[in-house]
Design a binder for these strands. Sequence first.
DNA 1: TAAAATATTTAAGCGAGCTTAAATATTAAT
DNA 2: ATTAATATTTAAGCTCGCTTAAATATTTTA
Lengths: 219, 219
Amino acid sequence: MSTAIENFVKAIYKNGKRDNNDTKPGNIAKELGISNAAATDMAKKLSAKDLLHYKKYQELKLTDKGTKMALNVVRKHRLWEALLFKLFDLSLHDIHKEAELLEHQTSDLLANKISAYLGHPKFDPHGDPIPNEHGEITTIDTSIALSQAEEGKTYIISRLMSDDKEFFEFCALNELKYSNTVFVSKQFSNNKMTQILVKNNTILLNQDFSSIIYVNETN
Amino acid sequence: MSTAIENFVKAIYKNGKRDNNDTKPGNIAKELGISNAAATDMAKKLSAKDLLHYKKYQELKLTDKGTKMALNVVRKHRLWEALLFKLFDLSLHDIHKEAELLEHQTSDLLANKISAYLGHPKFDPHGDPIPNEHGEITTIDTSIALSQAEEGKTYIISRLMSDDKEFFEFCALNELKYSNTVFVSKQFSNNKMTQILVKNNTILLNQDFSSIIYVNETN
DNA sequence: TAAAATATTTAAGCGAGCTTAAATATTAAT
DNA sequence: ATTAATATTTAAGCTCGCTTAAATATTTTA
Ligand SMILES: [Mn+2]
Ligand SMILES: [Mn+2]
Ligand SMILES: [Mn+2]
Ligand SMILES: [Mn+2]
């Protein structure tokens, strides 16, 4: 399958994993940087290929076949990120950009080799789970967004769910990275902001950021 | 530039490096597995982009710009081969196949990172030279094809110039690999065959193979 | 050197993956 | 419940990278 198709099913898959999951052509179009018309068009084509269910004006739903394809692409993406992160001195954003292209030019054989080389890792450098070679995610995700965290509690960063360059620059500047500890000092519910303490620095996050930084409770 | 364009200029570049260099559309078409018409068409387009010189019925000649592009793709191809060969247990042919795709989805930045990680290697696993980041090949190639080798002399394998699966299988079965020693026991000039001795095995090579196995004299 | 074989070019056309503009349906606001 | 705003769909058309068939040029062979 083509790069365009792989990116399309992946976008639907990822959209479904988000809170705010309105998986209509317009949202997929926005994610992929194409026109709404192009997205509708592609949806129809993929429906004919049995990769998704399409009914006019309804949400797009991946079929089992489509989900499998999406997970295979996601697997390759995250394996590449893990490999590049391990071998080279590159930013999370750069790694993501490279993986976004490499994921479509990688045989299943090579993906398995990368996985074996890395010791079959369960998570990529963002903390995102890596599907196994059967397209299964076996880990259970207990993490919550910082926006949902409890005031006065201490958490550990488990995922940075983004591919935005500026977000990663912000994270790098403020020690916000995988496995670091965060204390939630205040939730400003009305203003949808979260105040945290990281390595003795107080940071006030707006919802754009507090909703994509995922954490686990300490135990 | 697109994958199609990169493969096209690379094919011209590689054709020019061969003995039998008739760089007309038909030969490039054959190499790329496309029709002659498609090759002529592409040649015209690339001429407009100043990547090559095209005159009806004449040979295709890369411009400086085209040569630079070709060398950049070749660089990425060979760096990928070197990396995959080092990290994973994959055959030369498999490595080549993966590199053929990855070469087009690799930023200059990533290529430089791969090169640095490997200690800026000068040769890939086939013995082919790796252009540096300015597109220069600084090594001098003194090797000759086994078909040109002298009877009674001993040589060291320096390059296996092919991407054919069966050829690599043949090489693997007969200890024909980079840096191994070969004794040329007889040249059958009339029949264009070469008899060699490798690890006490006598092998009779036809010209198809003797012309793509490159060797250096021992000193 | 003339005929035959071969290669190249031109012409027409196709599918993939886009675009913009217009028509139509859905959703939100008054 | 209308109206206005927004999203989706349809329609038409574009480029890229191919194809096959026919026309034309080159090269080989006799
Ligand atoms: Mn990523
Ligand atoms: Mn991608
Ligand atoms: Mn190769
Ligand atoms: Mn290639």
